[in-house]
Write a protein that binds this DNA or RNA. Structure first.
Length: 196
DNA sequence: CGGTTTTGACCGGCGC
DNA sequence: GCGCCGGTCAAAACCG
C-alpha cells in the first residue's frame, strides 16, 4: 500500500477523481464514460436504465462492429451470471468507468490482490481480476484495456467495501470537507442506504 | 518469512 | 449434449 506515498501523481487518491487523476485527461470526456449501477433493475425493464456493463457499453459505442460476441454480453446475461454462481458477493453495486491512462492499475486507495488474468474473446488485451485484500471484504474489480483504443483502461468494480479506504481515513483528517460531488463519497453514502 | 503475482487448470452458464 | 467462454482457484514463483 503506497497510497500515502504514491510517487505517481497520475494515480493520486480517489478523492481527486476528475481533478488530478491524470493531467492529460479531460474530465468531460471522463464523465462521459462513467457509469453507475446500484442493482435496481431487478423488477423493471432493464433496457430503461442502468446499462452498465462495460461489454454493453462497448457494444453501444461500436454498434455492431464485431457481430455476435458483444450482444451475448448483455447486462441481463451478467445479472444471471452473478445470481447463478456462488453467493459470495451480493449482487448490487457495480461501477464501471473508462479512463485514459498508461497505467492499468489505478491506485484507488484500496489494497487489491490479483487473482486471475484472462484473455477475452474480442479483445487483444488480457483482463485482470483483483480482489480487495482486506479481510472479509469481497469486493472485486476487473481491469482491461479498451479493445479499440488501448490507451484507455476500463475498470469495473463489483460489490461494496465493508470497510473504509485507508486513504479515505487519511483524507477525512484533512481540513477540507469531503466533496459532495465526489463519486467515492456518493458510493460511501449509497453503501449505507443499500445495506438494508 | 509473509504477502503478492503468475499461470494453467477447473468450473459453471449459455448458445447452438 | 457439446463446445465456447468468462470467472475463479490454487500451487508455485517471486519479491521486499
Amino acid at each position: 500500500m503506497d497510497c500515502l506515498q504514491n510517487p505517481n501523481p497520475s494515480s493520486a487518491g480517489p478523492y481527486h477523481f476528475g481533478e488530478s487523476i491524470d493531467p492529460s485527461m479531460d474530465f468531460d470526456e471522463f464523465s462521459d464514460y462513467f457509469m453507475l449501477d446500484y442493482g435496481v433493475n431487478d423488477h423493471q425493464d432493464s433496457s430503461s436504465l442502468s446499462i452498465v456493463s462495460p461489454e454493453k457499453f462497448m457494444a453501444d459505442r461500436s454498434t455492431g462492429s464485431s457481430g455476435g460476441a458483444t450482444s451475448r454480453n448483455s447486462n441481463n446475461n451478467m445479472k444471471c451470471r452473478n445470481e447463478g454462481r456462488r453467493n459470495k458477493i451480493e449482487m448490487g453495486h457495480r461501477v464501471a468507468f473508462r479512463t485514459k491512462s498508461e497505467l492499468e492499475v489505478m491506485d484507488d486507495g484500496f489494497k487489491w490482490r490479483k487473482y486471475g488474468k484472462k484473455s477475452v474473446k474480442n479483445s487483444p488485451n488480457p483482463r485482470n481480476y483483483y480482489k480487495c485484500s482486506s479481510g472479509g471484504c469481497n469486493v472485486k474489480k476487473r481491469v482491461e484495456r479498451d479493445r479499440e483504443d488501448s490507451s484507455y483502461v476500463i475498470t469495473t468494480y463489483d460489490g461494496v467495501h465493508n470497510h473504509e479506504s485507508p486513504c479515505v481515513v487519511y483524507y477525512n483528517q484533512m481540513p477540507t470537507p469531503v466533496d459532495p460531488n465526489n463519486i467515492w463519497t456518493l458510493r460511501a453514502s449509497s453503501q449505507s442506504s443499500a445495506s438494508s
